[in-house]
Amino acid sequence: MKILVICQYYYPEPFKIHEICEELVKRGNEVTVITGRPNYPDGNLFPGYDNQDKMNEIINGIHVIRTKIPLRGNNSISLVRNYFSYPRYAKKEIKKLDKEFDVVFVYQLSPVFMIKPALYYKKKYEKKVYVYCLDLWPESLKVLHIKEANPIFKVLNLICNRLYKKCDFISVTSPAFINYLNEINKVELNKLSCIPQHGENFFLKVKPYEKQDKLNITFAGNIGKAQDFECLVRAIAQIPDSYYHKLKITIIGSGSYETKFKQQVKENKLDSIFDFTGRKKIGELISYYNDTSLFLLSLEKNSNIGKTIPSKLQTYMAAGRGIIGSIDGTSADIIHNANAGMICSAGNDKELAKIVMEMVDADDNLIKILSKNSRDYFMSNFTIDKYIDKILKKLEELG
């Protein structure tokens, strides 16, 4: 099949779409991606991508076309410009294409507007559009404290409904998303399915858990408001000083909330516990994960966004470590059903503090059991082979 992929983000940005494209090529498909200049999450262009040759290149068998969209920057105005510019620039690149494709695949993160170029291609060439939805819109606006009563929310809800309803089929990452798209976005149930994200087989390289000098709880990923680090700081601040020498919290990544997060750690005099490493390349993560006792998974409370399954859950499970979850919804269900960790409701700092202390005091065999259960669940549910089997079947049905 000839597959046109529409996604504002692509390698070297930290999303799974490049792995999906590479696997599709390995299975004999021809893939072209129309994306933006890589600048997520910090808003700065990745080194080397000011080179014109990088705007149109072949990466591991995939034809990657990059549009000259404005960068995210570090303020709301530049972010809005970035969000609204991609559909327009991608449409221009579509007009330049010298061949037709069998089907269009949209890997839909935020913003939802990245669906628009795919619908333009659908109208021009009468091809079908398959969307893999990772972020709900307009629900995602609630992270910015834009609620249902806000006129902006209402207008965007109408726009989102039109975009989603024009797509031929939508797969989502979590069962809760199906209810949202059906009830809020008015998408018919027969056009919806759930396919959880895959984890990265690369992290199977992480060694089996071995006892650490300290309980090392690791978070890896985007440091944003949605991850609710305020709850984490409040929780750790409640723990008695006598635990400090037995506890370490490693924060790997960067993002818009990083500065405020560090400030909160400092204000609560928790510098001796927290270790901020900055963002790391994927190959560098193995050594950090080898030294990890448990991973942290957290999301804000009181939002449907909390019902998503963050991709880091699959990554954590692939790495073979237990998980401390301050999270609601499907992710909490998975951790519980897999017997892969300890969970409390999102935003519950008292329960989170209690869990951390329990794990510091826990028998080392418990952490080993959680680690094994976590990886076993990954192998049974979240490998890329299982994911691509389902995605490709739908692409072939629509193509």
Rank of each mutant, 00 (worst) to 15 (best):
1 M>A: 04
7 C>R: 13
7 C>G: 14
22 E>W: 14
30 E>D: 09
32 T>Y: 02
34 I>W: 01
42 D>E: 15
44 N>P: 02
51 N>Q: 04
60 N>E: 05
67 T>E: 09
73 G>S: 07
84 F>V: 15
93 E>V: 08
93 E>Q: 06
99 K>Q: 13
100 E>Q: 10
109 L>F: 15
110 S>R: 10
111 P>W: 00
113 F>M: 11
118 A>H: 00
121 Y>N: 03
125 Y>D: 12
130 Y>R: 13
132 Y>M: 12
133 C>R: 04
140 S>R: 06
141 L>F: 02
159 I>N: 00
160 C>N: 02
165 K>S: 10
168 D>L: 03
170 I>V: 09
175 P>E: 07
178 I>F: 01
180 Y>A: 04
181 L>F: 12
197 Q>G: 15
203 F>M: 03
204 L>I: 04
207 K>F: 13
207 K>D: 07
219 F>E: 05
222 N>S: 02
222 N>K: 00
230 E>L: 11
232 L>S: 12
236 I>H: 09
238 Q>K: 14
241 D>S: 14
250 T>N: 12
256 S>L: 00
262 K>Y: 03
262 K>C: 02
270 L>G: 08
273 I>D: 13
279 R>V: 14
281 K>D: 10
283 G>K: 15
283 G>P: 08
290 N>Q: 02
298 S>P: 00
298 S>C: 15
310 P>L: 08
310 P>T: 02
317 M>N: 13
318 A>G: 03
322 G>N: 08
329 G>Y: 07
338 A>P: 01
340 A>H: 07
345 S>P: 05
346 A>I: 09
349 D>M: 04
373 N>H: 07
384 I>G: 01
384 I>V: 15
387 Y>E: 04
392 L>T: 05
396 E>Y: 02
397 E>I: 10
398 L>D: 05
398 L>W: 00
